[in-house]
Simulated assay, not measured.
Amino acid sequence: MFDLLTGPLRLPAIQPPTTHLGMFTSAIVGFGDTTVELIRFGEPPETPEEEAPARLWGIAFEPAHSLEESRRELDRRDLPRLSPQVFEMPDMAGGSSRMWTNLSVGLLEHTRRARAAFFIGRLFGGLQQRQMNRMVQKASRGEEIRPIHEERMDSMNDLVGHGLVFLTEYDPGFYDPTRGRVEGHRALQEACGGSLGVQGIQEVIVGTRDIEVARSQWRRFFEPAPEVETGLWQPEGGPALRLDPSGESRLRTLVLRVSSLVQAQGLLRSERMLDEDAHGQTRIAPTTIGGLDIRLTDRNQSRGPTKKE
């Protein structure tokens, strides 16, 4: 996927594939002021035929305040969450330093087991953090860390297979999000939007089985940002989030904004990557991009508040 996005599609590589603590490998691709992180848990398959389909798995938001303030605010708004999880890296002195902290929020309709995991994880989140700390300590001593095996991934998929929504707070010495957005925007401009003329991510579409329950939760999450139309929010900076009552609860679609839809269609057609049966929409053929649903638009759809249901 990284080779496709940074090769034929010529999008800027922000971070090349990097293995973290022997557990997972990630790479980051720039889409302007938003980045997409590609993650693989465990070892890569031996042949392309064994490659599992790609999927949209998580949305990371930058908190408006400190993560501790955000935690209290989530509780006040009665939104389910896990305990904060700190990610550290070994340092030269044999200790560790913080890279970032994630705070997962239960905004997607999970299985019964997943809802139970959110409840238990909130009560006993320290157990997971201690396990993470032990792995960092092993890495700092040069000890081998067992990779995430397929059986453990199957269990994880069963719990949070619909995806995760989380807040991420970076340590200032590790990464500056404000600087990252400026550099990401510059990198995309220097690449002229890649071969598709990408200007940014327009929307993230989230499928839901119960639109009213989902609207209530996301409305509380985004306050005071308004719901600009039914099931649509436009946060300050970054893509909009749209709910779709598709009958399947999951992170479903990325909509990319391009400078010229006609030119983008021509490029995709020449690369045999255009979905010719997309019901009037422009979509990259899922079979050419790991099964993902990625659509294109050349309309800037930012809106002001409108009357809602």
Rank of each mutant, 00 (worst) to 15 (best):
L127H: 01
P239L: 01
R242L: 09
E68T: 11
E68R: 05
Q15W: 11
A278I: 14
D298A: 13
E43M: 06
D91C: 06
D298Y: 07
L159C: 04
A54Y: 08
E212F: 06
L56T: 09
H149F: 04
E144M: 08
S83Y: 03
V36L: 13
Q128W: 08
P90N: 05
R181V: 10
P45H: 09
L9R: 06
V258N: 08
E143T: 09
G161E: 12
Q131D: 10
L74D: 05
L188G: 08
N102I: 07
E143P: 03
G142I: 05
E248V: 15
G126F: 13
Q281Y: 10
S216I: 02
Q129K: 03
E144R: 13
E51W: 00
Q202I: 00
L261S: 06
Q129C: 09
R269C: 07
F174Y: 14
N300C: 10
L167M: 05
F41G: 00
R242V: 05
R269M: 08
H162M: 11
G95A: 14
A187S: 15
Y175R: 15
P80G: 13
G231P: 03
P235D: 07
S140Y: 06
L159N: 02
T297N: 03
P16S: 14
S195P: 02
M132I: 03
M135E: 13
L9Y: 12
L241V: 14
A139C: 11
R209K: 12
G22R: 05
T253C: 12
G173F: 06
V160C: 02
M89S: 05
V86Y: 03
V258A: 11
A64Q: 15
S249M: 00
W233A: 05
E203H: 05
R134W: 02
P8W: 08
R122P: 03
K308G: 14
Y175S: 13
E190D: 15
H110D: 11
A60M: 04
F24D: 01
L268C: 04
A54L: 15
L256M: 12
V262S: 07
V228S: 12
F41P: 00
I284D: 00
R219Y: 02
T306Q: 11
E183T: 08
A214R: 01
P226N: 05
A13Q: 14
G106D: 10
H185G: 02
S260T: 02
L267W: 00
H149E: 14
